[in-house]
Design a protein around this nucleic acid. Structure first.
Lengths: 213, 213
DNA sequence: TCCTCGAAGTTGATGGTGTCAACATGAGGG
DNA sequence: CCCTCATGTTGACACCATCAACTTCGAGGA
């Protein structure tokens, strides 16, 4: 037997599940107070184990933080994927445009909803051009070219341009003390990008439908 | 006399200049190692004063950090202003477009050159819509409308959209481990914005001149 | 069945940090 | 000339990360 599923509330010497318990406690702390507030000793206390127990499962604080960052990134991509799939429109061009906008909206909304996890996840991105958000954008942008809305000559580097826009908006919205969350501002940003891309194929910007509401 | 200009290397009991010495030491630390690495005790050591001396001039670590953030913000605005004024082109429309691009370039370049100060300065922004970068963008965008490149209907919210783009690019470029500094990517972003604004008045995007080089 | 061996958890120490409280100094105004 | 009080100092406390040495206990072989 694999030794998991230890009996509840039994204070065994061996926790049996420490690694997972620490990570999920870590996620909770980062969610509520940010990555700076994560302390190994505090986590150990919460889980009911002594300080230093964590060192049997993680090389140190940074290692645990990296694991938490992974959870955050996974959560972000999960919600983005769901939102992408929720776009159901028949017109191919409109559908592609709305998918791009929805990627941006879901990204920003996650950042605002989970600033702690968001900041940590982003700070852990090693290779920008190999990261999940980049790859998702790449797909959506390819589609935009395929349906004839974005000109192939303007395709190169579009991932970074789009990501920069929504990422910067997210940071401005959650950084510092004042919150800029005005939905209208985000729609302006998304419209700006959409208009620019339409212009590459001479299409006048028909208004982009707003959020699903 | 104002008690300043104390004699060099004289180990007086009263430093005479502690506040300034602490702040500039703080700027140096943040510049080289980031805000997280700033420790009051370390600063005191560098300045040759005992721990706790700083508490005669600052309420605590956060207070000192705020002062350093102010210095960073001032430096950022200084370089941006100089770069803005360096745009000397006769054609009014082209000049306005280049000024917008130059705001973006100088912002990103500062972030890449001084990531520690940049991050700290941005994190200290209290009211986004009253911050110096926002106000500078507002001026440039007003100009863009005045010369007939940006349509008045598309003017609203443009500060946030532009700032989001360059800010996000900056963050992606300096965050995490891998650096994305590819100049070409920034030009793509600036072109995307420029094209979008030109489209609002039906102007086809004549290529935007690259960096002064 | 028993025994051992190593993974998992514990205790303790070291050196770092921010911050409070009480004390010491000495420069400048009365 | 001396007194005052802003400016520095010393000491203490409570945290923290991390290393080293010790303890426990579960699983697998004899």
């Amino acid at each position: 037997m694999l030794g998991y599923g230890r009996r509840v509330t039994a204070s065994t010497y061996h926790h049996g599940n420490l690694r997972e318990a620490l990570v999920s406690a870590g996620v909770e702390v980062v969610r509520e107070h940010g990555a700076d507030a994560l302390a190994l000793r505090d986590l150990a206390r919460r889980v009911g184990v002594s300080h230093n127990a964590a060192y049997r499962h993680f090389a140190g604080r940074d290692d645990l933080l990296a694991e938490v960052a992974g959870r955050g990134a996974a959560e972000l991509m999960g919600t983005m994927t769901r939102r992408l799939e929720s776009v159901t429109v028949d017109d191919l061009v409109l559908r592609a445009r709305m998918r791009l906008a929805e990627v941006g909206r879901s990204y920003v909304e996650f950042a605002v909803r989970e600033p702690g996890l968001f900041r940590l996840a982003v700070s852990a991105i090693a290779d920008v051009e190999a990261s999940p958000p980049y790859l998702m954008l790449a797909e959506v942008l390819d589609d935009l070219v395929a349906v004839g809305y974005l000109a192939p000559e303007a395709r190169r580097g579009a991932e970074i341009a789009c990501w920069s826009g929504v990422h910067g908006f997210s940071c401005l919205a959650i950084d510092g003390t004042s919150r800029l969350d005005h939905d209208a501002a985000l729609e302006v940003l998304l419209t700006t990008i959409d208009r620019s891309y339409g212009a590459t194929t001479g299409q006048v910007a028909s208004p982009l439908p707003g959020p699903a509401a």
